[in-house]
Design a protein around this nucleic acid. Structure first.
Lengths: 149, 149
DNA sequence: CATAAGTATATGAGAGTTCAACTAAAATGG
DNA sequence: CCATTTTAGTTGAACTCTCATATACTTATG
């Protein structure tokens, strides 16, 4: 009844878990060490920095930063304490809230970015041939098409 | 100076983050919902179940389950509370500790496995062609060769 | 052999995540 | 319109993870 994994699938699956975890740990360690933030916070700052006025509704920000609403809400609270983000009430829909990236927040992001990009290269792209990068892109697109809401 | 990502690399990178996070969230949600444990605990139980006597030294278990030693120590403490694992002093090296999978622990793993495997298929293998699975295996091997200690 | 280094693991505090519950404000629909 | 349902976002508690530190034992070194 259960469609168990055969040996090769097992190996691939475990290798996938190991590899993706290694990449994520490398990212998180680098950002925590050099910029004092976890990768999830970095993604929030990036999303905000790319938005018009560096401003975004909480729910849209959650979607862009691949965060649950609850996680985002907690995270923005911490980022607000650091002065990197501030919240602003939405007048047209008064349930809503905007998150706004402050100057300090943008500066923190700018300071963190080079080290982060180096780590991304080091932990993923440098390990792969251009052909493999292409394959990876297709694989990730296929997975997202299956799993994304 | 910084080797920034070009547009295509950016897209690949973000797609990678989205896809791997979707897979991990799907796994964790399924296991938490249906078996009451996070994926990290599941990996610990799997590693133990495959060891001779279902017994392993803490440090080897940490390596096999891709866990830090501290994380493993906390996790085994919780698993011990549930009666799924017990610790046993090591006589030849009295600093050491064995983790032993109990009958209940094995039963919990056996009960969780089918649903978990279904989720693995659903969230990864079913999305990919056999060729893509092969590519993924090579990509993960390359990443591990770069990042593994 | 005594002491310094190193190894195996545990522990506690602080931080992030999840889940369920909660508030408040729209939208919907008799 | 009023009652219901839906949507936006927050909150608190429980749990896991990380990091630094502590503990206990073992191995190396002079």
């Amino acid at each position: 009844m259960t469609r168990w994994l055969d040996d090769e699938e097992q190996r691939t699956w475990r290798s996938f878990l190991a590899a993706t975890q290694l990449v994520n740990e490398a990212l998180d360690r680098q950002l925590q060490r050099d910029a004092g933030m976890p990768h999830t916070y970095y993604m929030i700052l990036v999303a905000l920095s790319e938005a018009p006025e560096r401003t975004m509704r909480m729910s849209e920000l959650a979607a862009r930063a691949q965060s649950s609403q609850s996680r985002l809400s907690h995270a923005v609270a911490r980022l607000e304490e650091r002065g990197w983000v501030r919240r602003q009430r939405c007048d047209s829909d008064r349930r809503g809230n905007f998150a706004v990236l402050t100057g300090d927040g943008f500066a923190a992001l700018a300071a963190a970015a080079p080290g982060h990009v180096e780590e991304v290269r080091r932990s993923l792209f440098d390990a792969l041939t251009p052909e493999q990068v292409g394959h990876l892109a297709e694989i990730c697109a296929a997975v997202r098409d299956t799993l994304e809401p």
